[in-house]
């Protein structure tokens, strides 16, 4: 098996894979725009604010994960990249949530929790 054939094989393989990715990216970006549009509309819809809040959180989470999963190639990369990123993401999320809870105040300005 000579080297040139091998190389062309690998390039073909690359091409096919990248071609496949194009459609994935296109679908993802359409989904992202749809979600953004829904987000923009839903805040004006007269339903319970809790539901709006919840769906906003869920939708932006989906958008967030879609971008890192497909656009940022985590789907195709080694699991290690995901783990490294998740270490930061989890600690950052935990910190934000903890801070939000710590700043639940009573009227005098002292923390309640």
């Amino acid at each position: 098996m000579d080297a040139s054939q091998n190389t062309s094989n690998s390039v073909d393989h690359h091409l096919a894979e990248e071609h496949q990715k194009y459609f994935t990216f296109f679908n993802v970006s359409i989904a992202l725009i749809m979600l953004t549009a829904i987000e923009l509309v839903i805040v004006y819809v007269p339903i319970h604010p809790g539901i709006v809040m919840g769906s906003l959180v869920v939708m932006s989470l989906i958008k967030f994960l879609a971008v890192i999963w497909w656009f940022m190639h985590l789907r195709w990369d080694m699991i290690l990249c995901t783990l490294v990123f998740l270490s930061g993401l989890i600690i950052a999320t935990g910190t934000v949530i903890a801070l939000m809870l710590l700043f639940s105040e009573d009227p005098s300005g002292a923390p309640m929790i």
């Binding site: 990123f85 998740l86 930061g88 993401l89 600690i91 950052a92 910190t95 934000v96």
Partner: peptide, 13 residues
Amino acid sequence: LASDCMFFGTLIS
């Protein structure tokens, strides 16, 4: 990027 999560996490909080 993991580190940047903390940067923006701090600012957003």
